[in-house]
């Protein structure tokens, strides 16, 4: 039997990690929702964000959380650039094709390029940005919680909420949602399609950066670190519903809880299978996810 204290620890940990998954999924759901692209380079972009964050921290010593202000715009530009230069031409060429497989493969190939570029430039070593937050714990009424993960949870909630407000109440947010709902009508309405897509990709990448920074204090950085999170991010996106901000966060937390609590009753490797099963169940029963609409495409 598991003690209540440890059960609660598992719950809190599950929610914290889940919030991080949600944060990673946020960028993905934006890209997936607006452009209908399965972005297989998402993990590699997370890795690049972590690398940039780590090296800036290494040379400047500035607290990683403050660095978000610097790194996010950098990665936004990078994402914008990638979309405009690489993805746009292929997306256009496949405009009339029902399933733009080529785009998916392009992102997968880009992931390989980024990963090995990072390997060549930054080296293969595993590094971590050890700050005061690393290893610190917070006592919440008897439960010990990792400080870094807790801050991650807070930040994830804040960013998700801010992003939600952005989508609902700003002009740009409305444009993004319009493109997501119906690309052609949006174009007819005079919305600049290519530019909006590029901005969407840029924002998606910037959101990733927040997740990357939040991971830095307690997770290692390495050229292949992105792969660890990527499949989970996709599962969260589908679970939560395409293009839904609350869905991404909630979906992430659900997955985090399954992993955390499930591991108390079975081996960690089997919880992975459980997560996949849950995912498949969602796909078969309600593919639009928790908050998605019933629109198919």
């Amino acid at each position: 039997m598991i003690f209540l204290v440890d059960f609660l620890s598992a719950v809190v940990n599950g929610i914290s990690m889940g919030a991080i998954y949600g944060l990673i999924a946020l960028g993905l759901t934006l890209i997936f929702g607006i452009m209908r692209i399965i972005n297989f380079a998402h993990g590699a972009l997370l890795m690049l964000s972590m690398m940039v964050g780590y090296w800036i921290w290494k040379f400047s010593g500035v607290n990683p959380y403050l660095m978000i202000i610097v790194v996010a715009p950098i990665m936004f530009c990078f994402g914008y650039f990638v979309q405009r230069v690489f993805i746009k031409p292929v997306l256009d060429a496949q405009k009339d094709v029902r399933e733009p497989i080529a785009v998916l493969l392009l992102t997968a190939a880009l992931a390989i390029v980024f990963e090995n570029l990072a390997l060549m430039v930054f080296g293969a070593d595993y590094v971590m940005a050890k700050t005061t937050v690393t290893d610190a714990t917070i006592a919440l009424g008897g439960i010990t919680v990792s400080a870094a993960r807790f801050y991650a949870l807070i930040l994830a909630l804040v960013i998700a909420y801010a992003f939600y407000l952005f989508l609902q109440h700003t002009e740009l947010g409305r444009r993004l949602r319009a493109c997501g709902q119906d690309r052609n009508t949006a174009l007819l309405m005079g919305i600049d399609g290519p530019k909006t897509f590029a901005i969407a990709f840029g924002i998606g990448t910037a959101l990733l950066t927040v997740a990357a920074i939040v991971l830095l204090p307690f997770y290692y950085v390495h050229p292949t670190v992105g792969n660890v999170f990527m499949t989970k991010a996709f599962i969260v996106v589908v679970l939560g519903g395409l293009g839904s901000v609350p869905g991404a966060l909630l979906g992430g937390i659900i997955i985090g809880l399954i992993e955390s609590i499930g591991a108390q009753y079975m081996t960690a490797t089997l919880t992975t299978v459980v997560v996949y099963l849950v995912f498949l169940l969602i796909l078969f029963v309600k593919p639009s996810g928790l908050f998605g609409s019933r629109l198919e495409w």
């Binding site: 399965i38 998916l104 490797t269 089997l270 992975t272 996949y276 796909l283």
Partner: peptide, 28 residues
């Protein structure tokens, strides 16, 4: 039977999940 009613990206993701799931099962 269950996956063919899924469209596009959803089908792709389902196959990813099944693929990973089978691999983990074999590993264990």
């Amino acid at each position: 039977y269950p996956t063919f009613k899924l469209r596009g990206a959803y089908y792709a993701l389902a196959t990813v999940a099944i693929g990973s799931g089978v691999m983990v099962l074999i590993e264990n």
